[in-house]
Design a protein around this nucleic acid. Sequence first.
DNA 1: TTAAAGAGTTAGAATGAGTCTAAACTGCAA
DNA 2: TTGCAGTTTAGACTCATTCTAACTCTTTAA
Lengths: 149, 149
Amino acid sequence: MIQSLNEHNREDLQEALGKGGQKLTPQREVVFAVLLAQRDHPTVDEVFNRARESMPGLSLATVYNCLETFVGCGLVRQVNHERESTRYCPNLAPHAHFRDKETGQVHDIELPPEVMKSLRSILPPGFDSEVIEISFLGRTKANDPLHSN
Amino acid sequence: MIQSLNEHNREDLQEALGKGGQKLTPQREVVFAVLLAQRDHPTVDEVFNRARESMPGLSLATVYNCLETFVGCGLVRQVNHERESTRYCPNLAPHAHFRDKETGQVHDIELPPEVMKSLRSILPPGFDSEVIEISFLGRTKANDPLHSN
DNA sequence: TTAAAGAGTTAGAATGAGTCTAAACTGCAA
DNA sequence: TTGCAGTTTAGACTCATTCTAACTCTTTAA
């Protein structure tokens, strides 16, 4: 069982929430701690189960609410693959997602600025994009622990 | 009302279905014709409603079945944006999708081979990708009719 | 020409992720 | 201390999709 934030992370959370006009609550703290503790792109259900270990009364609706709030404040990203359950990711650096066909695991893939640039360059004039989502589907041969997040 | 394929398209459909061990049926023909007639990335429901104009007895389940068959035979691609209804696209050339935040419309964006290559190059060793999905979210300023598919 | 088999279609029931609602709770401010 | 705005909660609800079982159609085999 994990589930308490160090000062640094708590301050970050509080600040980001504040900017979005939201408050730091015990539930939000626990949910955020869950996301930071295990960066494996959990589903809402997975977050719920992990968070309940340290806060048994927590409700599923609250987990949905917390995650939505975090997305609104730019603290986490939603990750969708086809129509599977939405997953959540606290990695704010620009990155793509690689989904292992066999294990279902999702891995972050760093996105160098020049690749972002070449992607933006394919948009015809008049197309103005705020968000670019890139996802790979395939297999990972070596189960390289360095890239298992 | 649209809904009959010219010889050429019917032959293509029949051939692709055959390769996947599937047959050409009247329902599949109508559903495929709907996809070709209006390349606006319709949802299953939209396909269903359009197809029923020429085949009133058609059932929703069949539309789901047909589209699944087409995807299996490589005839159409599924397009997912967040958790909205899946949309279908008969454009087989490599392309990304641009979703207009305001209208919800989906536009195809051509993907030059060098961009595909630079994307593949960001995968660390051991990551082997079969499918890459790229989607932009944003606004289209000029409603340029050349790019409205 | 019938019979059996196999594929495809159909309507409606079931599933399940996500959203909504209304009541209860919390913390701060008058 | 009362009020109230924001938050949490349980459970009902929605709706895209999947499942099921019956039915139809076509093909093959006797």
